[in-house]
Design a protein around this nucleic acid. Structure first.
Length: 495
RNA sequence: GGCCCCAUGGUCAAGUGGUUAAGACACCGCCCUUUCACGGCGGUAACGCGGGUUCGAAUCCCGCUGGGGUCACCA
């Protein structure tokens, strides 16, 4: 009987949730959900100077937005709390005391300057820069004396320089490190607080973490962690190091590469479903042709042994494609809710609008424009002609559609014809419109395109008869007359 | 620099000794259509290099090259 799967994600609240972190968290979450395990959210805020309450809240908020929930964490508690490392100092101290009592760690009095000098000397002589071991074998008397004198000191783990340490990685297989590569690293800092490595291992142990699924950048540090687990006489959790996400130039992702945090993508109008789907595909493949994989499906198909070993370059284009897919799949009612604030901001609707005709009309506009939009910004842009008068016309369109000298009279003819159409619905408008086309002896496009441009100022959009119906008779006719007048008088503004 | 990881089209990514080397994004054509988008069809484009092993290598081994990570009293 296997023990229960318990995984964790331990972000540092020193900034926004990065997409790399989001993906790592998502993989942890998928694994936990699939194995009926527990997903723990632990806050790694041991760096008091850089940790902020603000980014703590932002990170939790990003996870909620992504639809990634946790079973144990700082806000909801759990049997192994507290879940903020800053509140676990006593636990770390107890573990340190144990190692001191067992002689597995020792105080080191070397100053930071001294160590720095050691490193520089090693570099000059081309030697690997490892701790010299200066304080490793001090006599018990000397230790006691210097400790009693209050000399600043850290604690180092006493490691064995012979043999090798093997990291069993679920994604990469066994990775072997020579113990001679691992020096007596610091587990407790001079400011009387644990180092990251120490706190992380103590927590993983105390929280009964079964699988550590984390970014590849930690692989090189893992033999240290394994050594620490051994010092505690405990079995190390299983490890799985997921590949990094790289920028298009194959360097590490940073601000200069554009949006890198979950909140930024959110503000850009990327839907959480799309982001989570994209992140899954970055480093994982279901093994078949599927590209659209929602959370529920992902829980079913996810497996660590199908996670790629190599780093992935992120590609916004594919994210945008996925976003377009999910965006169009939403019901217009949901979308209206999403863009409501923006519509209010643009003055397209009153914040407290309740008139059902107005609401129904907005819904209709959204319905027609949504299918040709990739995101909310596209949609709002496409809705513009239905809320604002036309002041300028698409430059290319004007040259192509307004150049025929007969255009003004044709637009007016259309206006006159529309004036008699009832009911003013797309099918009725269409038959009436097409009859006019025949009477004028034109081809459909010859009349349709100029009318669209006159009505919306652009050459793209929903079917013309839907456009006319949405605009309504009065507005449509007025715009046609205005455009006709502008063309006739040579005052067409272009954009 | 030492150590560790990795290497299939521009990008993501199937592939685990024998395939015409999938699929997706992007790009280019064509079709659909009143335009755009969607959709459909088609196209350009890849196993980093060199040695082995084998009847046969993208797949296994070695070397090289390239990329990334890590060597902090930062996490």
């Amino acid at each position: 009987m296997d023990k229960q799967v318990r995984v964790r994600f331990a972000p540092s609240p020193t900034g926004a949730l990065h997409i790399g972190g989001a993906r790592t968290a998502y993989f942890n979450w998928l694994f936990a959900r699939q194995q009926q395990g527990v997903f723990v959210l632990r806050i790694d805020d041991t760096d008091r100077a850089r940790s902020t309450e603000e980014s703590y809240r932002q990170i939790l908020d990003s996870f909620r937005w992504l639809g990634i929930d946790w079973d144990e964490g700082p806000d909801c508690g759990g049997p192994y709390g507290p879940y903020r490392q800053s509140e676990r100092t006593e636990i770390y101290r107890n573990h340190l005391q144990r190692l001191i009592a067992e002689g597995k760690v020792y105080p080191c009095f070397c100053s930071a300057e001294q160590l720095q000098a050691d490193r520089e000397e090693a570099a000059r002589e081309g030697r690997p820069s490892r701790y010299s071991g200066r304080c490793r074998d001090l006599s018990a008397e000397e230790r006691e004396r210097r400790l009693a004198a209050g000399e600043p000191h850290v604690y180092r783990l006493r490691t064995d320089a012979t043999g090798e340490t093997v990291v069993h990685d679920l994604i990469r297989g066994d990775v072997v490190f020579q113990n001679s590569e691992i020096d007596d690293f610091i587990v407790w800092k001079a400011d009387d607080s644990p180092t990251y490595h120490f706190a992380s291992c103590v927590d993983d142990l105390a929280m009964r973490i079964s699988h550590v699924i984390r970014a590849e950048e930690h692989l090189s540090n893992t033999p240290r962690h394994v050594t620490l687990f051994e010092a505690f006489g405990s079995e190390a959790p299983a490890f799985a190091h997921v590949p990094m996400i790289l920028a298009p130039d194959r360097s590490k992702l940073s601000k200069r590469h554009g949006a890198t945090s979950v909140s930024e993508y959110r503000e850009m109008g990327i839907l959480p479903e799309a982001l989570v789907n994209y992140l899954l595909l970055l480093g994982f493949s279901p093994g078949d042709d599927r590209e659209i994989v929602d959370r529920e499906t992902a829980i079913e198909v996810f497996s660590l042994d199908r996670v790629a070993k190599h780093a992935a370059v992120y590609d916004v284009k594919k994210l945008e494609w996925l976003n377009a897919h999910y965006f169009r799949a939403q019901s217009p009612d949901v979308v209206v809710g999403q863009i409501w604030d923006e519509l209010v901001r643009f003055g397209y609707v009153a914040a407290n609008e309740v008139d059902r005709h107005v609401l129904a009309w907005i819904r209709t506009v959204v319905e027609f424009v949504q299918t040709r939009s990739r995101n909310a910004a596209d949609l709002i842009d496409g809705m513009r002609p239905y809320f604002e008068g036309i002041t300028a016309y698409d430059d290319k369109g004007v040259r192509k559609q307004f150049s025929d000298p007969a255009t003004p009279e044709r637009l007016r003819a259309v206006a006159q014809r529309l004036a008699g159409v009832a009911p003013f619905t797309a099918p009725v408008i269409e038959s009436s419109f097409r009859a006019l086309i025949d009477e004028l002896g034109l081809k459909a496009g010859q009349l349709i395109h100029p009318v669209r441009l006159a009505l919306t100022g652009v050459t793209v959009g929903p079917g013309l008869f839907d456009v006319i119906a949405m605009l309504g008779r009065e507005e449509a006719c007025q715009r046609l007359e205005i455009a006709a007048e502008r063309i006739a008088s040579g005052t067409v503004a272009t954009k």
